[in-house]
Amino acid sequence: MSELREQIENVIQSEDVALFMKGTPQFVMCGNSSRALDALRRAGAPVTAVDVLPDPRIRQELSSISSWPTIPQVFVRGELIGGADIVEQLAQSDELEQTLEEKLGPDYRGRAPERVVTVG
């Protein structure tokens, strides 16, 4: 497995909430990435963000892992939740918070600060 793929797999498996996005939480570069980030923030999710823009191979490896072609992609405890549409739709119906509580425990809110990790 390529080193980059391994790093991406590692983030997916080890982070409570992994958000692969265009840009960073401080400098979001795309509307859909912003929608996913906002929905996660409203739900109080402990977001670990990964910017896919620095290296096009990041997106290629990620999509080959997840079989999801677009960015952003949100994983909770290793499981793909979806892109911006699904995460936003779940947030609107409070299912996002339920999913986070089920997978991370009822005390997930504020457990970890939002942070950025780099791959590649």
Binding site: S67, W68, P69, I81, G82, D85, I86, L90
Partner: peptide, 26 residues
């Protein structure tokens, strides 16, 4: 929901893959 959106992504794999579609809302 994920499986439903996967079907739509699959149907649009070509224009999504080559960047013809820059942003898609489903």
């Amino acid at each position: 929901l994920l499986e439903q959106h996967r079907l739509v992504n699959d149907a649009l794999a070509a224009p999504l893959g080559d960047g013809t579609i820059h942003e898609l809302r489903i």
